[in-house]
């Protein structure tokens, strides 16, 4: 150690750690609250919203006026997406928000299977 320990250490990290903001809650599963999932405050949410943590309150304030995508919520709150998803999961559990999930993407057909079928057809009918 250099002999200048009297110099005060400056703490630059964020004061409130993220795991306190989420209260130690785990991430929701991957398919929940994707980027394009839309969220909006429930009708009677305003009364209970006062007891929320400032971050959850901020999310609620963003979605009171209408549907907003999860990605946009994350962008506005400057919180990491995962943290926003945890907060949203908590809010939905408390039925403070409505969630509209995106239409699931059509599944890709297995290319090998298709070529196997094609192969079979060719063998059967001769091309």
């Amino acid at each position: 150690m250099p002999d200048e320990p009297e110099q005060e250490l400056e703490l630059t990290s964020s004061l409130v750690p993220l795991f306190v903001i989420t209260n130690g809650r785990a991430l929701p599963p991957d398919h929940e609250y994707e980027h394009t999932t839309l969220v909006m405050a429930a009708q009677d949410a305003a009364a209970t919203a006062r007891t929320l943590s400032p971050e959850a309150g901020q999310v609620m304030a963003l979605v009171t006026e209408g549907f907003l995508s999860v990605a946009e919520v994350a962008g506005h709150t400057h919180l990491p997406l995962g943290i926003v998803r945890i907060l949203l999961a908590q809010l939905e559990e408390d039925s403070l928000i409505l969630v509209r999930r995106p239409i699931p993407r059509a599944e890709r057909v297995d290319r090998e299977l298709v070529s196997a079928v094609l192969e079979g057809l060719k063998n059967r009918f001769g091309a």
């Binding site: 630059t12 990290s13 964020s14 750690p17 993220l18 795991f19 989420t22 130690g24 785990a26 991430l27 991957d30 994350a74 919180l79 990491p80 997406l81 995962g82 943290i83």
Partner: peptide, 24 residues
């Protein structure tokens, strides 16, 4: 400070939950 920036960098990744525990 480092963990803070890593958490923000991988904020959308599943590794975030582990990062939160490390940070704790």
């Amino acid at each position: 400070t480092l963990l803070d920036s890593v958490q923000r960098k991988y904020g959308g990744h599943a590794v975030l939950s582990d990062l939160l525990e490390v940070n704790h």
